[in-house]
Design a protein around this nucleic acid. Structure first.
Lengths: 214, 214, 214, 214
DNA sequence: CATGAATGAGTCTTCATTCAT
DNA sequence: CATGAATGAAGACTCATTCAT
């Protein structure tokens, strides 16, 4: 009995993984422009099986986003652990971009996914700490705040999405420029009011950028 | 006679404009995810009328892109005419972003549209001149080339698309940082090889980013 | 006044001819699978002009059939005038096939067209005379009647339609065989009852074969 | 298990048959001028069900053609097995016509359908054997070849299509004449060069005659 | 009268989702 | 539980015909 039940659970879990793996593959290849039936075929399961696990195609895509964000979070934690606090900010931003590039999820600006919500808080807190370290070390201009960092990472991610497949690595030049701009150096002040938490929430909640599928 | 002929063309032209206006509205609201029938309804014409002027939904979207690029080109020419050559580069980049923000075409990275093709050449040439001016005036670091400028503008446009509706003006902070990075100042060298013309062509030709419709 | 009126009538007549010529061309090229708009373009007139002359696309096609039948009738009359009465039947059948082949109206089994109706009577009468001549000369088996001749011509026409474009002239072998079968020679009797006038009417009126367009 | 699996397949198969039956009915009634939706309605299924089995309306029509050709082939094989070799040719031609008449597929000159392709070879080979038998028995004139037989059957089929619904059996008179012409008897030689294999291919491949749908 | 712009019903096809087996 | 068959609401596009200019 137990065995049977476990077997079932086991099979179910494996199926779930297969479906997610197939969906991820397809997402990497085509963005959200793939069919649920294609996922089923590639996963080697029936279409009904997918709908048993995921109520909706959109829910399936959400589930794709979760590990992506977990990997990002791991990256963020690693940067926090960097021995030289002053280096943490650049290390962090570069590592995030690198991770995004490696991850292969293109057109994957998935931050407003339901699953991303809980992760975002930890993420923001991490950024706050890292930025404070950089500031203490005099490695960042005074007028940027954690949300600026979020926007930078977001933008570079979009650039990676847009270009990495066509011309790999190009985004690095761009990232270099931005990091250069981040460093202190008697530069002209930023021309717009600081980004607030509320702004950030609005951004993340705003439909168009983040819409999945269709 | 002339009057009659023109009247006809007049009405037809007005309908054409109505269709384009409706399509633009819908594009601003939903990106390319709108129905030809919606366009017809909003324009107050039959569906056949749309297909009389535009052989395809995709052609209609192309036509949407055309004035957008023409406005960008006008902006570029204006920047070239700026009295102080050294100022031209920053003026140019800011003006392009501004124009894009004002234009309201969101998710509108339309550079690979058929209609954009002929405009691109003039655009690139303008950038070359402007960059040379800035370099002569010592206002830009030595290791950036015209294609870097193209990528910058492209990226900022994407950022505007993504954020301007949710939190207006935020993109300006980002742009400030990048412009700061563009200025000379003994900064760290760029970590990746320069972008070539061929890279640029690949970028622009790469389907996924720029594909309209579907 | 008169001049103007005549000019008008003249222009109108010429337009009518142009439309018919364009339609015929298109019919030869594509069968009935062409657009009214294509006719207008090729004729160099507006679409409204066509609808002024011909109430319907189908009526236009009918009008195409008229000269075709008139040519056939001329052919029939010529055969009647052949000096050797006994030769008239084969001459007639061959000439009809030839005329059909030359005419170039493919998939043009137009016998049930409204315009063909009045011509059919004269046609049948001609066949009757010709057949009587052949019979008097002992050049045709006794058990065929005028309607058999009609069916033969009809069938060969269909064969021409089907094959002449792909492999010209092949239909002649076939026609030879049939003519051979028509000649007297102690052959096996025909296995089916003679075709009556009523049969002929049914045939000609039967939809599927003759349907134009769509 | 097996039962379940087969049940599924069973129902699906039944639906498939229903769809084919409905399509055949409609084809008999209207030729290819019917709607996929009509098929669905008449078959009592959703439109999607049709598209699950047949990727295209054209593929559905192909599938209609398949059994038709298989029946023809069976007929051909039966004629080859006729005890008296000399009789085989006429038996064959008559049987083919008969089968076509009974089959009820009107306007069904479907020989260039994809599904017909593989059957054609066997068909031609059968005709060759049968013709040789007839020639050995002195029952056919010397100057006809297998392709002539093909053209004869094709033409008679067209005649059946055109007339059988309006006046049943009339085609038999015609067929009698042609068979008469096929027999030897010191008749006039055929006036055109023999039909070659290449001719036959051209014929079959020539679009206009055989094109299904639209 | 001529023109060609406008119309919109009708066609094929796709795909997320439900449901019988 | 798994399967994959069934569903049907859209969506893009065509074309005969009408009608304003």
């Amino acid at each position: 009995m137990t065995t049977t039940a476990e077997r079932l659970r086991c099979d179910a879990a494996r199926n779930r993984e297969r479906v997610l793996a197939a969906a991820l593959e397809l997402y990497r290849e085509h963005g959200p422009a793939f069919t649920v039936e294609e996922v089923a075929t590639r996963a080697g399961v029936g279409i009904g099986t997918i709908y048993r696990r995921f109520p909706t195609k959109s829910a399936l895509l959400d589930e794709l986003a979760r590990p992506y964000f977990e990997r990002l979070l791991t990256t963020a934690r690693a940067a926090q652990a960097h021995p030289a606090p002053a280096e943490r900010l650049e290390t962090f931003i570069r590592a995030m971009a690198e991770q995004h590039a490696v991850d292969g999820i293109r057109s994957g600006r998935l931050w407003d996914t339901t699953v991303a919500r809980p992760l975002r808080d930890e993420y923001i807190r991490a950024v706050e700490g890292i930025l404070a370290d950089a500031r203490a070390g005099g490695r960042v201009r005074a007028d940027v705040n954690p949300h600026d960092v979020g926007v930078i990472i977001w933008t570079v991610s979009a650039l990676i999405d847009a270009t990495d497949r066509a011309v790999a690595e190009i985004w690095r030049r761009y990232l270099d420029l931005v990091l250069d701009g981040l460093r202190p150096g008697g530069d002209q002040p930023l021309t717009t009011r600081p980004i607030t938490s509320a702004d950030w929430e609005s951004l993340v909640a705003s439909g168009p950028v983040l819409r999945l599928g269709t």
